[in-house]
């Protein structure tokens, strides 16, 4: 794939939340920028643009990634899942049930990252939870409720289908 390296745009297609979408990108566009500005998927936030906060977390082939640090063209051959595609994740409901949401700005990043944790490590203990979630910052909650949410989702993990990703509602 050759993408224009000038100010010009190139049409490419991107697999997001199970459906393939045509988009126009510059070579310098980050995945976060493309998702938000081209596809209207504004659940992922830019809170630092430097990989320091995790507010922009999306799944790339199931792995949580900081979309502010990825170029869109690096993600062209992968499947992207954003918070908008995780409506049925038990982690999302657990955040509501455990009062883990205040301003909500960090929430999509935490839920996406937490979903990946619950999917990949259904038996995660405190240490792994901690290591996994240190990439995300929250300024409102004090993290206790977020930890409770993740733990309750881990406990309820058997409700998850095999890949846990909701493809029904895009």
């Amino acid at each position: 794939m050759i993408v224009s390296n000038t100010g010009k745009y190139t049409v490419v297609s991107l697999l997001v939340n199970g459906s393939s979408q045509d988009i126009m990108i510059r070579s310098a566009d980050t995945l976060l920028c493309t998702l938000r500005n081209q596809l209207g998927l504004t659940g992922a936030k830019q809170a630092c643009g430097n990989g320091d906060c995790g507010a922009c977390t999306v799944l790339v082939d199931g792995k949580p990634m900081h979309s502010c640090l990825l170029l869109t063209m690096e993600a062209l051959n992968s499947g992207i899942t954003t918070i908008e595609g995780l409506r049925h994740s038990p982690v999302r409901q657990a955040f509501v049930d455990n009062w883990a949401i205040q301003c909500g700005y960090c929430t999509p990043g935490f839920i996406v990252n937490g979903h990946a944790l619950v999917t990949e490590h259904p038996d995660a203990e405190d240490e792994r939870i901690e290591e996994w979630l240190q990439s995300n910052l929250c300024r409102c909650t004090g993290y206790q409720e977020i930890k409770d949410a993740i733990k309750s989702a881990l406990n309820a993990n058997n409700l998850l289908d095999s890949n846990g990703i909701d493809t029904a509602e895009q």
Partner: peptide, 21 residues
């Protein structure tokens, strides 16, 4: 009482100012 903004915030659908164009 559950917060009236919790569910919408959890889905990523809340539009903060930076999300509006």
């Amino acid at each position: 009482e559950q917060r009236i903004d919790a569910v919408e915030k959890s889905t990523g659908n809340v539009k903060y100012l930076g999300d509006k164009s």
